[in-house]
Design a protein around this nucleic acid. Structure first.
Lengths: 232, 232
DNA sequence: ATTATAAACGGACAGTTGTCCACTTGTCAA
DNA sequence: TTGACAAGTGGACAACTGTCCGTTTATAAT
């Protein structure tokens, strides 16, 4: 959605409402894209194919979606929204559990979420990367949040849990924001794909590895822990 | 280097030697590319431009370099090689220091290395990503090490230090291979760029964050550490 | 020298992405 | 109803990537 002025099939908010035929096109585009993707794989389908299959011009397609990643994002919109809501619900209902327990579960779920929608998410992330080095210099100047709301939501969730863990003394004080970023980059679709496809790690192994570093800690119970005391 | 059959301007190893004019072209290509990159930024320069500026055909350029990332890799070859050698030298000469101390230093240096050659490395990584989703299904079938030797060298270094740290009881036993991967993905040029440009983290902050997670551990000295003991 | 041959060459070409713009059409207000 | 106008439309276009293939040329063997 290159810039949706209307609120999800709702009423116009001052601006003109989305034209009915346009709304129909949007649905057709999504349906057609879903089909093509399922058939040939996300990476193999081109924007031109999608436009032609949907019976519209390329310009029309691009008017709605700036690129394939944008389209994929819309395709996953509901799915992702549901995921985040469930995640928040879990955290809320498990409020009495230790923060680290909740964090473990959240990481596990995020991992599976990414894994389940790998192909679409990879496309989303890839196009985001490609955009990045075009905007190069102007990154800081032209707008606050380039990071998409999706990741922001996940970031917030992780930050909240980390903060809670620190406040409750479950872990030592740390840079909550950066650590959340670190977690997200570890669960990045591209990293995950690479680790599974090229390095042969199972999802369980990855989950265990993350758990060990971010939850258990490198100094597990029983380690001698001479760290930071440097002896020449 | 799409597949260099000869040994770095040395003698032919059974196969024919690289033709002299070809060798000259290679130098010219590298020089021209370096210039153009310095002038306009790596991302903005096209392969066509490079070919034209070097006075050769596009086919000739592509014969030597499969893509821009490949070219960038060659451009950084010596630099990177020197870096790895220095790193190995450091580790060797500090052999009596605790493994975690060495790991800290190595991480710090890798971070700076990536940071110093960001633009080129980003291109290398980006093209690697793009290749990835073309080869899709055949990832596991067609060859053992898609990961480039560069990363393999870094991976080995990190694995060695982690193994040493475990053996010496500095940290609890862990999945050494995956943890090294995790570290590398945290120091990935793209992640690093994003974290600096979009999130505004300084390199020092990133280094500190990594140190805290991977060296100090989430349970720093003084943390109560009730972890893993879940109290529903 | 001559010749065979594989390497190297370079430009045309096909496939993609994303932009542009002249044209059409739905929507709202009068 | 009508008319104005913004939203929507679609296809041509430009730019880039990477491949293909007929031609040239350096090298080594004769």
């Amino acid at each position: 959605m290159v810039h949706d002025p209307i609120v999800e099939d709702g009423i116009a908010s001052g601006a003109r409402r989305e034209r009915r035929d346009a709304a129909a096109h949007r649905q057709r585009i999504l349906a057609v894209a879903r089909d093509l993707f399922a058939h040939a794989g996300v990476a193999a389908v081109t924007m031109h194919q999608i436009a032609r299959a949907a019976g519209i011009g390329q310009g029309t397609l691009y008017r709605r979606y700036a690129n394939k990643g944008d389209l994929c994002r819309d395709l996953m919109h509901e799915h992702h929204e549901r995921f985040i809501i469930e995640l928040r619900a879990y955290v809320a209902e498990a409020y009495s559990a230790p923060a680290l327990t909740k964090l473990t579960e959240v990481i596990e779920r995020m991992l599976h979420f990414v894994n389940d929608s790998m192909a679409l998410l990879e496309t989303v992330v890839t196009t985001a990367i490609l955009d990045m080095d075009c905007n190069e210099g102007s990154a800081l100047t032209d707008g606050p949040p380039m990071r998409h709301e999706w990741f922001q939501a996940q970031q917030n969730l992780l930050e909240g849990l980390l903060r809670e863990a620190v406040a409750d003394g479950e872990i030592a004080p740390l840079d909550v924001a950066y650590t959340a970023d670190l977690l997200l980059s570890a669960m990045n679709p591209l990293s995950l794909h690479y680790q599974q496809a090229e390095r042969g790690y199972s999802l369980e192994r990855i989950a265990a590895g993350l758990r060990h570093i971010f939850i258990t800690g490198v100094h597990g119970p029983g380690a001698t822990n001479p760290a930071t005391a440097q002896q020449g």
